[in-house]
């Protein structure tokens, strides 16, 4: 079992909370894990990514090779495209469809969706809307993990345990909202793939 995941988004959007939950679930499942992240300059509203690697064998490189990622999990649609060079031929692009528009030359949304549509395996999800409809707008990241859960190679219950561990000190209500968001993302993907 080996999964290489590129997490992407914009500085400040919180891709690291995704890495923390999946990382915890991986360790909890007795797997090896390496996760390279970006600190410093680009955290100020620039593009950010994290290389998350999970395996049942020792992992060497902290970076995923080009053409090696099983999943690009992005919380911003244009950012999912920036990392296509990393995607394996049969890899998945799973991305939130809400643009984070903080530049003057942001492309047309329909053009972005056309490019995402060209990727053989993709899931486009309105994670912000799903999170809002649950009354938990801040749980958008957990919706995204749920959307990817079918391809992570980790038991769903371990992801739930990860959320409990990470958000536990904030109280049951927050934990439950995040687990609800995780499940909503999962069922969205299942329905999306049936179509």
């Amino acid at each position: 079992m080996k999964k290489d995941i590129i997490l992407s988004g914009v500085g400040g959007q919180g891709i690291l909370s995704i890495a923390t939950v999946i990382g915890y679930a991986a360790i909890d499942s007795g797997l090896y894990m390496k996760q390279a992240e970006v600190h410093g300059m680009s955290q100020r509203g620039g593009d950010v990514q994290s290389h998350l690697r999970i395996s049942d064998k020792e992992i060497f490189s902290d970076l995923i090779p080009f053409g090696g990622a099983d999943i690009i999990l992005s919380i911003e649609p244009m950012e999912s495209l920036r990392y296509l060079p990393y995607l394996a031929e049969d890899g998945w692009v799973i991305t939130n469809n809400t643009p984070f528009n903080n530049i003057v030359n942001y492309p047309e949304v329909k053009d972005i969706e056309t490019e995402i549509g060209k990727v053989k395996n993709h899931i486009l999800i309105d994670a912000d809307d799903i999170a809002r409809s649950l009354g938990a707008p801040l749980s958008m990241n957990m919706v995204m993990i749920g959307a990817a859960s079918g391809s992570l190679g980790i038991d769903f219950s371990k992801l739930e345990a990860g959320i409990k561990f990470i958000f536990g000190r904030k109280g049951d209500e927050i934990v439950n909202k995040n687990i609800e968001a995780l499940r909503a993302g999962k069922s969205f993907s299942e329905n999306f793939l049936k179509k």
Binding site: G46, L81, I103, N105
Partner: peptide, 19 residues
């Protein structure tokens, strides 16, 4: 050499900025 999918041309640079 290694092959990889190119970044689509529409992807714009997103430099860091003031908060």
């Amino acid at each position: 050499d290694f092959s990889m999918t190119p970044v689509p041309e529409i992807v714009a640079a997103r430099p860091p900025k003031f908060c």
